[in-house]
């Protein structure tokens, strides 16, 4: 790893460890290996959002050209959000692309920006078109779905019994649970259409 990159990451790692956010358990970062090229991040779902109470794990890959190029970040924890792929966890955020600024941004600011993204989605610049469409057209449905995903995958507090029932209807037919959840979420919890989707495609 290039000297500049290693030096920066060490410093930024310390910055996160010492930050006041870590005291409040809002953000966290851990080393995955000794080479500093890969890190594990964690952010808490912000209050008053469907993600509240959940913990979201991130994969952070530091490129050789860091900090002149942004780190490559994606969600490991499955999440229902317009700007995050529900399949791969890929993130659509300008500062992780062309708006990255070498002198201004650090691991800490990246984690805080992602947390802010969970509070304020940008449905007009979607990563996941299905989620974004639901966010715009059926906001209440979106809120429930995101809360449900937070409960199932990120350890969130709110159980959604209605939604669980629908999933069970599909798993009883032999459909794998996650696939059932994705199909139901994508079809606005319309059991009939989700069933067709699972069985016929």
């Amino acid at each position: 790893m290039a000297n500049i990159a290693a030096q920066r990451i060490k410093r930024e790692f310390k910055e996160v460890i010492k930050s006041e956010e870590i005291a409040k358990c809002a953000i966290k970062v851990e080393l995955v290996n000794d080479s500093l090229t890969e890190l594990k991040g964690e952010i808490a779902g912000p209050p008053d959002t469907p993600y509240e109470g959940g913990n979201f794990v991130l994969e952070i890959k530091v490129p050789e050209t860091y900090p002149f190029n942004p780190p490559k970040v994606r969600f490991i924890t499955k999440i229902w959000h317009p700007n995050i792929s529900s399949v791969t966890g890929a993130i659509c955020l300008d500062i992780l692309k062309d708006q990255w600024q070498a002198a201004a941004m650090t691991l800490r600011t990246v984690l805080l920006s992602l947390q802010a993204l969970l509070s304020a989605a940008e449905p007009d610049d979607p990563q996941d078109a299905v989620v974004a469409k639901q966010y715009k057209e059926h906001p209440e449905m979106f809120r429930q779905t995101a809360t449900h995903w937070t409960f199932v995958y990120a350890g969130g507090p709110a159980k959604m019994p209605d939604l669980d029932d629908k999933i069970r209807r599909l798993t009883d037919m032999g459909i794998e649970e996650h696939n059932a959840r994705v199909a139901l979420s994508s079809y606005n919890w319309d059991l009939e259409r989700a069933t067709e989707h699972c069985l016929f495609s």
């Binding site: 500049i4 070498a102 002198a103």
Partner: peptide, 10 residues
């Protein structure tokens, strides 16, 4: 007077 470069922290 020189000092710390905020990009490479050197």
């Amino acid at each position: 007077k020189g000092g710390l470069c905020s990009v490479c922290v050197t």
